[in-house]
Design a protein around this nucleic acid. Structure first.
Ligand SMILES: [Zn+2]
Ligand SMILES: [Zn+2]
Ligand SMILES: [Zn+2]
Ligand SMILES: [Zn+2]
Lengths: 144, 144
DNA sequence: GTTAGTCATGGTACTTAGTATCATTAATAT
DNA sequence: ATATTAATGATACTAAGTACCATGACTAAC
């Protein structure tokens, strides 16, 4: 399993490279994302940026999603969580206590998925895996 | 990988065993579920039962979910899909063309997940896996 | 079978996540 | 500096689901 240090792209630069304008709203949203990093909801961002319209929050998240710089996780309950993302294929851990989201890659999973596709009826074209965990921080807090 | 024939419990009996009443609305909802089997949305059921209140549809689905006789899948887009379920731990296939939902079990996955939990920071307490496929029916249709 | 108690229902209003519309404003290119 | 066009915020809307409540349907006791 790899959990290497992520070198994240300059998100605003990526936006501009694709022809999108570097606006105040986008900059402030991206700034918050880079601050939070993982496991935030659209609503949380809106709360921290009352001057930015709700529609713009969602528009921007959608844009970043399309560009692959963030992920959206549809969890079993609660609103979807967004998190900054490395670009390559990966999966997620979600702490069931604090809601923090992590990324991980595991060659073993990908190998197994490739194997499975021979045994599943139909053509497997993708997969999605979430691990539910209690993170180290939350485990510690409980034993104090 | 196992994909064994499912022997499904009598859902109404399960409800009654838990002290819930056998009502007209519940019977008609359960009847439709048993008919459809997999990959239906709450809205679809509502459409087929105009005489049953929307709230009751959701209440009943929630109840069946708690009892473990159906699953809800939060897909990357579109409304959640429900499907009848065997009771044991399993995972899902979703056809990206027709939306049909299937269940499967694979000891290899469970073994791998157990292994991963040694390598992931934090305590792994559960997982969720979805395979996105084009099912045999949909593949055939495309080559015609 | 009737009755009493309670559970469940349907209707309505509300919430939450997200989208459509649109007049106004801000970013870019020249 | 100006013109062009993209982006914005406000508002209204949709879709999935929940809260509330007076009415009606089940069930159990008799
Ligand atoms: Zn991710
Ligand atoms: Zn945690
Ligand atoms: Zn299932
Ligand atoms: Zn299909």
């Amino acid at each position: 399993m790899t959990n290497e240090q992520v070198v994240r792209p300059n998100i605003m630069a990526v936006l501009e490279d694709r022809g999108y304008r570097s606006t105040n709203s986008r900059r402030s949203i991206v700034h918050i994302l880079e601050d939070k990093g993982s496991g935030f909801t659209a609503e949380e961002i809106g709360r921290e940026l009352p001057s930015v319209g709700r529609a713009t929050i969602f528009r921007t998240l959608k844009l970043l999603l399309e560009m692959g710089v963030i992920c959206r996780l549809n969890l079993p309950d609660g609103p979807p969580k967004y998190s900054l993302s490395r670009v390559e294929h990966h999966h997620h851990t979600v702490c069931v206590v604090c809601g923090n989201v992590g990324e991980f890659r595991a060659a073993t999973i990908e190998r197994l998925m490739r194997t499975l596709s021979n045994e599943i009826p139909g053509d497997v074209i993708g997969h999605r895996i979430e691990l539910y965990i209690t993170c180290d921080l939350c485990s510690k807090e409980n034993t104090n």
